[in-house]
Simulated assay, not measured.
Amino acid sequence: MCNTTQIVQKIFKNITLTNDELHLIANTFEKVYLKKDETLLKINTTVKNQYYVYSGCLRTFYIDKTGKEHTLQFAIEDWWISDYTAFFSSGKAIMNIESIQNATLLKLSRTQMEHLLENIPALETFFRKKMERAFSSFQKRILSNLALSAQERYVAFVNTYPNIEQSVKNYHIASYLGITTESLSRIRKTLAKG
């Protein structure tokens, strides 16, 4: 595996950073290793960190009052993940995050992030653009859930996460799409017949 400085160069590849800035960032991040099915974050816990996914796959999910799981997001390599509602409000988690593959993450606390933003102004733009894309992505997802058929949502999922299906359980995908596993099987059969 790459050292932390090499990972930082990958994360911030579109930003020109000095060696001192690279080392400051690399020394700020903490590596976290998760095994498959390990929990990163539980509902009602304090959220102090966000995570960069160096390798592996995680999912963010909510459990409703009936015990049904609703997958909100998958995070794959080069994505960021946290319960951002709690992270930015210094509140308690409203969602759970679990690893669905062995994963290597880089952890960054809110305090550490603020320190980096104060000392490396180029990171302010980087994180702002990341949040803009994430907000846009969540709006598109909401609209697709309202306006698209289950089959169209599945096709959009496959386009967004092209290499994830082999690693994710069917009920995770069905939960993300808001359908049953039986409906997911029917959609796949229909598309396979083409």
Rank of each mutant, 00 (worst) to 15 (best):
F135D: 02
D64I: 10
L105N: 02
S90V: 15
V53A: 03
Q73C: 03
F126E: 00
N49V: 07
E124A: 14
T180R: 08
V168M: 01
R133T: 03
Q151R: 09
L191P: 02
N14H: 12
Y54G: 02
G56M: 04
T18A: 06
I179C: 02
S149I: 01
L34Q: 04
Y171Q: 06
K169V: 11
S89I: 10
A156G: 06
E132D: 09
N102Q: 15
N27P: 01
P162A: 08
P121V: 07
L108M: 03
A156H: 00
T190E: 12
D37I: 04
T4C: 01
A134V: 05
G56S: 03
G56I: 03
L108I: 07
Q166P: 07
I179S: 02
E124Y: 12
L40Y: 06
I97H: 01
E132L: 04
V32L: 12
Y154F: 13
Q139P: 00
R186F: 05
S167K: 10
T60K: 13
Q9A: 10
T180E: 09
K140D: 05
F88C: 14
Y33C: 08
T181F: 04
Q151G: 09
E124W: 11
K36S: 09
L116E: 06
L146Y: 11
L24N: 07
Y84D: 02
N3F: 02
S185D: 14
F127S: 07
R141A: 00
E182R: 11
K48H: 13
T4M: 01
Y171T: 02
K130F: 12
K65S: 15
I120N: 11
F157P: 02
I173N: 00
T18R: 05
F138P: 03
H115Q: 13
H115D: 15
T190H: 11
N27S: 09
T111C: 09
F29P: 05
S137G: 09
L146C: 08
I173Y: 02
N159E: 10
T60M: 10
Y52N: 05
F61Q: 05
K42R: 14
F29I: 07
L40P: 07
V168P: 11
Y62F: 15
T66W: 12
E69R: 12
K92V: 12
L108N: 02
L184C: 05
S109G: 07
E152T: 05
A174N: 06
L22K: 01
A134R: 06
A174L: 06
S109H: 07
N49F: 14
T18E: 05
M131P: 09
T125A: 12
I179L: 03
A134Y: 09
N119E: 15
Y51A: 04
E21C: 04
E165P: 04
E114R: 11
